[in-house]
Amino acid sequence: MEPTKDETHAIVEFVDVLLREGAVIQADVIVTVADIPLIGISLRAAIAGMTTMTDYGMFEEWDAAHRQRQGEAFTTSSRAGQREE
């Protein structure tokens, strides 16, 4: 099987991971590291409750970007990504 980043379960999981994992920096100059567990829980529930992946334009972009990446046989390359609001 191939790994995915597009499906709802992957995004729900990713939200959790981005809010709770990743390097945490201890330094005087650090202003904030988000510690918003309540929002995290509500957010996860909200995303899990979405009926379609294309509820938001964001997901289409996300989806397209990942499918393109898979098609590029996964090499590191110089890539300027442009995101439109």
Binding site: L19, E21, V24, A27, V31, T32, V33, A34
Partner: peptide, 8 residues
Amino acid sequence: MRFDTVLE
């Protein structure tokens, strides 16, 4: 980094 990491 974790989300919302900001340095001054």
